[in-house]
Design a protein around this nucleic acid. Structure first.
Lengths: 146, 146
DNA sequence: ATAGCATATGCAATAGATTTGCAAGTAGTA
DNA sequence: TACTACTTGCAAATCTATTGCATATGCTAT
């Protein structure tokens, strides 16, 4: 009797980096694949709860730490006193963060890689990653003079 | 009899933004003026202790919050799970943060203002501030293959 | 399909960063 | 110099993140 099983999405990706494909990890990956803005641990936990995936904040922290170690995710800061995460595969974009409504837009910009080479040559500093975020007011908040 | 009093450095700067020039606030400003790398609350507290300026961590947090609100300092994150601060007057520079030894170098780069104008035109997003940090290995850590 | 084992998770406790309430102290003004 | 509003110190509370340990489970080799 064929039972509908958990689809093997993400399973191979996880196994590739020597991680077991647990329900929580799979759900977290799906969440990350379907969100356009970086999310924090609380948001991830809320999603898991809604999906009826048993979890615990400590587990989510552990998952995000190991995903980041394995290079699946990237840890970023919007200066909120906590971390956010996004898939590391989303390369070459930066964030426009509205300080009024909190909306986050992506912004592509390709001058950074060239700059990194320059830094390496001039300063001898080997850049392995970078963070570039712009803070301000999005179009609608700006227009409302809010 | 003329007594040596606390020099009025910083006093006017503080009063200008409607803040009282207290010993702790003055000492914090002096510390910030004399450090080249962004400092965290614990470092500030240590400095105040060494200077025999009575203080408390809660007070330092309050000082840094109000300094940041008033635009005296800038709050930045090196993804350490805590904030660092630097004088907002130190414009147009970014940081090269060594992940091995923790050394922080400044790096000047002036393409960002132009980019901000571009963002405003293309996205309608009004940029009021930004964060750009590079992580990697400084020259000596890199050479030691550490 | 299943046993065995290393890895993951849940839960509770802990650590560290930051905030807050409140009473007491103090800078700036008249 | 006295007054008042702003600041501070202290303790307690929050919040983010980490850790220890016993239990549960994914994965590999039968």
């Amino acid at each position: 009797m064929t039972q509908v099983k958990i689809k093997h999405d993400c399973k191979l990706e996880l196994n590739d980096v020597a991680l077991r494909a647990t329900p929580a990890r799979i759900a977290v990956m799906k969440f990350l694949e379907n969100t356009t803005t970086p999310v924090d641990v609380q948001m991830i936990k809320n999603y898991l709860d809604k999906q009826n995936v048993s979890s615990d904040a400590a587990t989510v922290f552990r998952i995000m730490n190991i995903f980041t170690e394995k290079g699946i995710t990237r840890q970023i800061s919007f200066n909120e006193g906590k971390f956010r995460y996004e898939l590391a595969s989303r390369e070459d974009h930066h964030h426009l963060i509205c300080k009024n409504c909190g909306k986050v837009e992506d912004f592509s910009y390709c001058a950074i890689p060239a700059l990194e080479k320059d830094i390496q040559k001039k300063k001898g500093f080997l850049v392995t990653s970078h963070a570039l975020e712009f803070y301000g007011l999005c179009e609608s908040c700006k227009d409302r003079q809010n």
